[in-house]
Design a protein around this nucleic acid. Structure first.
Lengths: 237, 237
DNA sequence: CCGGGGCTGTGACCGATATCACCCGCGGGG
DNA sequence: CCCCGCGGGTGATATCGGTCACAGCCCCGG
């Protein structure tokens, strides 16, 4: 009943103010109520691990509030970040739907509210509610697309500056039309390196180069694009 | 009515002998008959392009017979192969379901039989048949997984030998328990390079090295694994 | 106020691999 | 029959960026 991580836990999806227009939140009333019945709401602190790659799928997590880092790790301990999930997204759906082990690890990057649904309940829910199933398919399609985009970034670009430029453009893609787009992000150089598949030092060096050339500046957690066209030239557009 | 590409075109899914246990083929009778009504069967020669990245989605292609190469190309003309699709798989579903442009290119690698379904018809079909929709979701999950696997391969391995070893093991994963697993594959060194994101020369060199060390031999289109454990050690397992 | 730990910045080094340049062998078409 | 084009094989070279090593910095807690 209290607020353990600095915010109030919202228990009822139907009257939830966090609802985004994405995915299950935008379901018709009947399906939403059915979803509300089978879900467990919970709040997590930053750094909580929701599931680990290799575990057999317990079910899905619907992200209501906060950011969650999705990653995969090699045998030698090297980590690759696949995505930073935003509110409205569903985590662990691939494994849950196909019944194979989670192939990625999900860790909260900040205090989060999540709805958990057990696998059996979720599958039943999808079977009963065709519109929800279609939404699920759409969500999976989106995931595939973002995966394909990352494959392109990793496989088709030769240089680290190119990949970093692509990432910066991706981050600022939504804040268009501004002269100098700014984005807030709370990622260390290390984490950026893990997204574009390079080393921490290289990220530092490339960012220093971007700063020197007045292309982009990352100060604190604020990223400012000074010269978008240079970045676009780097990605080969 | 004839056999333009060396095989007979099969028009009826319900009595089709090619039916695999995967995806739509294994649907209950009602759904299968509905699918049969909305699909168009057609045969294609080798090298036919089904769709190109960037096109808006016309619909899905269900692969009955043959192999199809899925790839994506950078602005500079460099190509990355995402997958070689096998019979039973559905192509272009992400784009069709989510309504966004095809993000990959599909090209037949040999004479193929395919069933095409228009986007609207397909979406209707999914809405009417919940079990088909669930199958679709499962298929999309599989695609995501294979995409994540490729991301791992591209992002988490340092060396080309490691990636090639991973690929060889993947190819021979199904033919287990044999002392010297053999696989038939019709890929040039160039294409292998495009799968693991390296250059043609590197593939040639690494294969030569594998041959010299009696690890794996690629002769003609037959791949033979001589020493699996060395490959496994290379991928860090 | 001080100390320590995590993040950032930077230099030196060197190894894997992209790239270029060339050769060979083979198979199909003129 | 002879070419020509494609796929495969190989050496030389340049370079990107991974790795190691260390220094400065900022923030937080004691």
């Amino acid at each position: 009943m209290g607020s353990p991580y600095g915010f109030e836990l919202i228990e009822n999806c139907v009257i939830c103010k966090l609802r985004s227009d994405s995915f299950f939140c935008s379901l018709p009333k009947a399906a939403l109520e059915a979803f509300d019945k089978i879900k467990y709401s919970a709040a997590y602190p930053a750094g909580a691990v929701l599931f680990v790659e290799g575990q057999s799928p317990r079910g899905i997590y619907m992200l209501c509030k906060g950011r969650v880092k999705l990653s995969t790790t090699s045998a030698e301990g090297k980590t690759l970040i696949l995505k930073i999930s935003q509110p409205g997204e569903v985590l662990g759906m691939h494994a849950t739907v196909s019944g194979t082990p989670y192939e990625i690890t999900a860790e909260t990057g900040q205090p989060c509210q999540l709805n958990f649904v057990k696998r059996d309940d979720f599958l039943n829910f999808l079977q009963k509610h065709g519109d929800a199933c279609l939404k699920a398919a759409q969500h999976l399609s989106k995931d595939c697309q973002s995966a394909y985009q990352q494959i392109r970034s990793l496989g088709l670009s030769h240089s680290a500056p190119e990949r970093l430029a692509r990432l910066l453009l991706e981050w600022t893609a939504t804040s268009h039309d501004q002269q100098e787009p700014k984005v807030k992000l709370a990622l260390t150089h290390e984490e950026i390196a893990q997204i574009i598949g390079t080393s921490r030092e290289t990220v530092t060096r490339v960012l220093a180069d971007f700063r020197k050339r007045q292309v982009a500046v990352l100060k604190g957690s604020t990223l400012t694009i000074r010269n978008k066209s240079v970045l676009e030239k780097l990605v080969g557009a």
